[in-house]
Write a protein that binds this DNA or RNA. Structure first.
Lengths: 211, 211
DNA sequence: AGATTTTAATGCGAAATGGTACAAAATATG
DNA sequence: CATATTTTGTACCATTTCGCATTAAAATCT
């Protein structure tokens, strides 16, 4: 049932490329240049697909971009849920979330890439409603995933009794947003890790949650 | 001495436009569309300057963009220092900083604009070194201004004795960065204000700083 | 094998883009 | 007034852009 989804033999000529891989390559282009500055030639070169193939497989440039955004959101959620393993203390969870984020953000050829969503989708969000929708939904999904863990933390006493899980989740996200921006602005790993540590401290800190 | 800077009567035909106003109009265009997607036609139409005039007055598109960024940074610093009036309690200061930020971020015709720097310069930061430099410097300047107030707060006992002003400043900035992103992602004023309030609470909160 | 269906490759084209040449206009200086 | 200097407006250019039409190629179905 899992593998049946693609077993229906398609009629015509089979694709000579892997869709997921192509989206990944396209994502790298958008990540470095931003959506608007990424040309179809750039994308075509990076994916080894000529423009008509790109167009046939993904639709126009905006459609392709939305696909890369969705893929990133999904990957991000996977990393996040793994980092939030509830068998670990809350403090470790949040630290792992930030560490995982920095692992992604600090990659880059010429300069650190930061967060793909925050680094590129924000720029288009005002004009392109669909991009704004994906961006907003992604941020909310991240918040929601963290909020689940925060709820557990309140139950377990890792956070003060009256603490609002949603509020704590949003503040935990806020630190991550800042890391995303600062990484792309060129801040060093040392600075970013220091911010991450102090964020963990502030949110899960002994002063508040005696976590 | 202040007004002498421009009193040297220039020789040729005088400009028929106000430079500052033109930069402001251009900034609005970049703010909505992002740097790459803003065409010289867009900028020309918004400023009522034809392309050669734009080019003559500001240089090429990137030069003009950098001018708008610098102007925004300067304006932002002014708003920030005003909000951080040291005769007020730290809690009020930070609340005013966020309120001032939201006042700017929530403007927009089709959708909220968010922060001009974070919303548009991050997208270009990887490829354009000069943009990355301005972005990084701006973030640091904001941090520095807040840090000064935090230092004072430690001296006054508004924050715990051992607290590191730089750390607290960066965390205060982090909440603002999150507001910047979320505003552009379409979050409502209510949500943003709630985040701002909880950010103030967490950073200046009684549990920690008994401010 | 022949028909059908889907993908791949070449190349085109209309429009938009960033930038500039050039001449007219407007002002200060001599 | 004449000249030098700067700005303005029209028109233009070379390039890039996105998107597609068309044709060739490769697989499946009958």
């Amino acid at each position: 049932m899992v593998q049946n989804m693609k077993v229906e033999k398609k009629r015509g000529r089979p694709r000579a490329f892997d869709t997921k891989a192509a989206i990944g390559k396209a994502r790298d282009v958008f990540w470095d240049r931003g959506y608007a500055a990424a040309s179809l030639d750039n994308l075509s070169a990076a994916t080894n697909l000529n423009r008509p193939s790109l167009y046939g497989a993904f639709g126009d440039k905006e459609d392709l971009y939305l696909d890369t955004l969705e893929g990133y959101r999904q990957d991000g959620m996977d990393v996040l849920t793994e980092a939030l393993d509830p068998s670990l203390p809350l403090r470790d969870n949040i630290a792992r979330v930030y560490a995982g984020a920095l692992e992604i953000y600090l990659h880059g050829d010429t300069a650190a890439r930061g967060c793909f969503l925050i680094g590129t989708a924000t720029a288009e969000a005002v004009q392109h409603e669909r991009v704004r929708e994906v961006l907003g939904r992604s941020l909310n999904d991240f918040d929601g995933e963290i909020e689940k863990r925060m709820r557990l933390a309140v139950e377990r006493g890792e956070l003060p009794e009256g603490a609002d899980p949603q509020t704590f989740a949003r503040l935990a996200s806020a630190v991550m947003h800042s890391l995303a921006v600062r990484a792309r602005a060129g801040d060093s790993r040392e600075v970013l890790e220091a911010i991450a540590r102090s964020g963990v401290e502030l949110i899960c800190g002994s002063a508040l949650g005696r976590g």
